[in-house]
């Protein structure tokens, strides 16, 4: 029997190991290797930090990097602010059918391709778009207004795309908060704000953290939304990576950028987990 079990174990381990080693681990080691080399002659490479030095000495690169990081943090905060009242409403104010209906309604847009969602925002925001026409019709502006191709448009798109990944963990964690505890807080003289601050938000912290981590990572790695809604000046870091790889064919620099983006994302995730005393496994499941 013992022998039997171990054969099954190795049979199950094999696909797992092949998948993870061939498609995730080796590619990232290769990427690091390429990021840390420099072409010295045709087909001759040497170890060097040149690509990373280039990143820090070329203002366009690190400014784009910082901009992407700051805007991702901002988008995460905005998503949390917008999603929290909605999640609370779904989790605590509703019961039965209307609750599952509104929750499902929240999920529906995210079954649709990100490309389609972004396209919808383009139709709404562009110069000939729905909002511009509505504003003219209402007499608020005299001519067509271009609402697309600026940072606010990028922000709207990013928040929209991330919403689901904030609402689901928040609803889950808020549902586990017993109504009695909220009532007890009121009975003890608390008002809405003190109850929120001292009862609801501390209880919801694990959900807030996992939502924020997922949203931040997705925003940082997003390519489509900044590219389509931000136009030529969107300056998103993933666009730099794409340019280095596909347009300039400078794989060394592109890999270095990839490593830097991974480091930033891991650093922020690690900080979030440390501050909230959670683990990656508990956040994801």
């Amino acid at each position: 029997m013992k022998q039997h079990t171990s054969i099954f174990f190795w049979l199950l381990l094999a696909p797992f190991a092949l998948w993870l080693i061939l498609l995730v681990i080796i590619p990232h080691i290769d990427m690091l290797g390429i990021a840390l080399r420099e072409q010295t002659a045709p087909r001759e490479y040497a170890f060097s930090f040149k690509n990373f030095i280039e990143f820090f000495t070329e203002p366009l690169y690190w400014r784009t990097f910082m901009r992407t990081a700051v805007m991702s943090i901002l988008a995460t905060a905005l998503t949390l602010l917008i999603a929290f009242p909605v999640s609370y409403y779904i989790a605590k104010m509703l019961r039965g059918r209307s609750k599952s209906f509104l929750f499902l309604l929240c999920l529906i847009p995210f079954w649709v391709s990100e490309l389609v969602r972004t396209y919808g925002w383009m139709i709404l925001l562009r110069e000939t778009g729905v909002i511009s026409n509505a504003l003219q019709w209402a007499g608020l502006v005299s001519g067509p207004v271009e609402l697309l191709y600026n940072d606010a448009a990028i922000m709207v798109g990013l928040v929209y795309t991330s919403m689901l990944f904030m609402v689901v963990p928040l609803v889950t964690v808020l549902e586990s908060l017993d109504d009695d505890i909220i009532e007890a807080s009121y009975d003890l003289g608390g008002n809405m704000w003190t109850t929120m601050r001292q009862i609801v938000i501390p209880h919801a912290m694990p959900g807030i953290v996992s939502g924020c981590i997922i949203v931040f990572m997705m925003t940082l790695g997003n390519y489509l939304t900044p590219n389509l809604l931000g136009g030529k000046d969107s300056l998103w870091f993933t666009e730099q990576i794409y340019t280095q790889f596909i347009t300039r064919f400078n794989w060394e620099l592109g890999s270095a950028f990839g490593i830097l983006l991974l480091l930033l994302s891991s650093l922020i995730v690690w900080l979030g987990l440390k501050l909230s005393r959670q683990t990656l496994t508990s956040t994801m499941t």
Binding site: H28, T238, Y242, L261, S266
Partner: peptide, 9 residues
């Protein structure tokens, strides 16, 4: 956790 673009490259 890995951004899709980076997994791709």
């Amino acid at each position: 956790v890995i951004p899709g673009v980076i997994l791709g490259i």
